[in-house]
Amino acid sequence: MRRLLIQRLVSAVFVMLIASFLSFLLLFYAPGNPAETIIRQQSGLDPTYAEIELFMKRHDLNRPFLVQCLQWLYLLTHGKLGVSLRTGEPVLEEFTARFGATFQLAVAAMALSVIIGLPIGVFAATKPNSLFDHIIRVVSLAGVSIPEFWLGLMLMLCFSLALGWLPCFGHGTVRHLVLPMITLAVGITASLMRFVRTSMLEVLNLDYIKTAKAKGLREVVIVWKHALKNALIPVVTILGTQVGHLLAGAVIVETVFSWPGIGKFFVDSIYARDYPVIQGFVLIIAAIYVLVNLLVDILYVYLDPRVRYEGRS
């Protein structure tokens, strides 16, 4: 286990470095200029050439690519992520102030997906090619294909504007959470259903399921204990990778519903070319991604007794 942790931490460092380098590269060569956008935002006027030059110089933005890159790394080794060009606040503070809202949304969406997707996937697998199974196949295909921004707008139109049941945007109460949560959960639920179904179908054909039947166990025990415990192993891996999808989806959903999380702030920062924020957020998100997948690996040990990381080459 310790070996695994060390391996993962080392690879995490590389993943984070590569992710930030690539985003740095993309941003550097992308058209647009933070000075223009930000000065316009702050003063409301089109900036002059001299103003832009001054802004660039003040923030070391006119240095060569590699120099800027190294500068940023130097700051990083001192535990600093820099300061937002737009708000003047430290990037880390901007992140922590908003991460709670995103975390809430992501966890709620993930929980909803598991609560709905898992049992449906299991039921579909116990009755393959039944009417229920066919309906679920169509529904999950639709769920995977529907883009989040469109779904979010449709839900708003239906439940906020037409029916008036739930608020359209904002943050604070559980009622505010419902629509964004559903929007974010639909895609994950749909793919989870399919993964669970496939994995269960595979397991239900194995020899030890026949043994369980020969023991006279109830169908419920065979499906939910003997089969599911094994079928979950690959599903957990998928859930780990879905976290990436979840964070990407959060960016869109937060923008649609004006949810005050990192996603929305991240998008605004990209429009404004707020380099330090983008860099910092990419770094933190990469770290979260690596961390979640490490958790998945640890969870594996509990799910699959055959996996013991000690003594593995």
Binding site: L206, L217, H226
Partner: peptide
């Protein structure tokens, strides 16, 4: 029939590695 299985008539399968559930002790 389920109550007969395992209680009155038990089966012992070949290849116990695949016939035992790997996830349960």
């Amino acid at each position: 029939m389920r109550k007969v299985r395992g209680r009155q008539v038990s089966m012992i399968f070949q290849n116990p590695l695949s016939s035992l559930n790997p996830a349960l002790s």
